[in-house]
């Protein structure tokens, strides 16, 4: 019943919208890594304001990066390593 209703709409805006979504989804990494140009940022931010699914994808991608950045434990450097390095350097002179 609803399908009839939506079919009545012209297709063009949907296609533009879909192209924008694809573009935005290809920019997710640039955005979360701070590598997007200011034009790209403007385009991106404007799009996610009105597109819920792209907004959510952006949130998920940020979450993913945050898991590594914020939760991956750093291993502790063995205390002897600096001494070993210095000793080996003096040996090879």
């Amino acid at each position: 019943m609803e399908s009839k209703f939506t079919e009545a709409y012209p297709k063009a805006p949907d296609e533009t919208r879909q192209a924008d979504c694809e573009k935005v989804s290809g920019m997710l990494d640039l955005m979360i890594d701070g590598e997007a140009s200011s034009e790209e940022q403007t385009f991106f931010n404007h799009h996610i304001e009105e597109c819920v699914s792209c907004f959510e994808n952006h949130q998920k991608q940020k979450l993913l990066k945050g898991l590594v950045t914020g939760h991956l434990k750093r291993v502790i450097v063995p205390k002897s390593l600096v001494q070993s390095i210095k000793a080996r350097i003096q040996e090879t002179l």
Binding site: V75, P78, L81, S84
Partner: peptide
């Protein structure tokens, strides 16, 4: 930390870092 994430082994990471500094 990078060496450890590549090798996933403490001794290997140790060796790799020493090699690098040499």
């Amino acid at each position: 930390n990078f060496a450890y994430r590549l090798t996933l082994d403490e001794d290997d990471a140790n060796d790799l870092v020493q090699e690098t500094y040499l």
